[in-house]
């Protein structure tokens, strides 16, 4: 059994994107893009490319350092600590931005990749589709549990053997209501379900 976790709002108790945007005084631009994306006017992949383009000149080390200090859900991290071999973080975020955060969480992770030169992002190399990680583990014969909250978790959750929509930081995306197996709204309930699935 593998437990796959979305990062933003599921392990972190704050979304990372606004934090990154503030570092570059780019909050207005990012907020507008986020609104358009949530309303469905910009498809997720396109939105992600635009987002990286807006934020690419902010020093990568500064972002990684800031994100490593973002608050995490304590009980969720304890579960990951106690089941480190079977927990995986699956995020669309760039690996170079999340290095500090990944180190703190301490389990295996998958993310999008970018080419970094002189502490700045120069080129997107890959954009993670979370469902491919579900497939990867299922192909190894693993039963996959996926915990997520956003529209970009939809396909991974649809494919997972067991899906948990977590409304910890914000309500789960509307699209998740028609595919999820479980839905929880605080850490206690989430960790109770996770432990019951072990």
């Amino acid at each position: 059994m593998k437990f796959l976790f979305d990062l933003d709002g599921t392990i972190t108790s704050q979304e990372t994107l606004p934090v990154i945007a503030r570092l570059g005084n780019l909050s207005d631009k990012i907020d507008q893009l986020t609104r358009e994306t949530i309303q469905g006017n910009v498809p997720f992949i396109e939105s992600f490319i635009q987002r990286v383009n807006i934020l690419k000149d902010i020093p990568v080390s500064l972002i990684s350092d800031s994100l490593s200090r973002i608050p995490l859900y304590r009980e969720v991290c304890d579960f990951i600590d106690n089941h480190r071999e079977n927990c995986v973080v699956v995020t669309g975020n760039l690996s170079c931005w999340c290095e500090g955060l990944f180190a703190k969480i301490g389990c295996k992770n998958f993310s999008s990749e970018a080419l970094v030169e002189n502490d700045a992002v120069v080129k997107l190399k890959s954009i993670l589709r979370k469902e491919t990680i579900v497939e990867l583990y299922q192909a190894q014969g693993e039963k996959v549990v996926f915990v997520g909250d956003g529209n970009n978790d939809l396909e991974a959750m649809r494919l997972a053997d067991i899906s948990i929509a977590a409304g910890l930081t914000h309500n789960p995306a509307n699209s998740l209501f028609s595919i999820t197996d479980y839905m929880v709204f605080n850490e206690t309930a989430l960790c109770r379900v996770l432990n019951q699935l072990c």
């Binding site: 209501f177 595919i179 999820t180 197996d181 479980y182 839905m183 929880v184 709204f185 309930a189 379900v193």
Partner: peptide, 22 residues
């Protein structure tokens, strides 16, 4: 009407596990 039920429950208690019968 899952959404309306969830909303009503959350106004009383947050640590409930909801299970969907689609």
């Amino acid at each position: 009407q899952a959404k309306s039920i969830i909303e009503e429950v959350l106004s009383i208690r947050k640590d409930v596990t909801f299970i969907f019968n689609h």
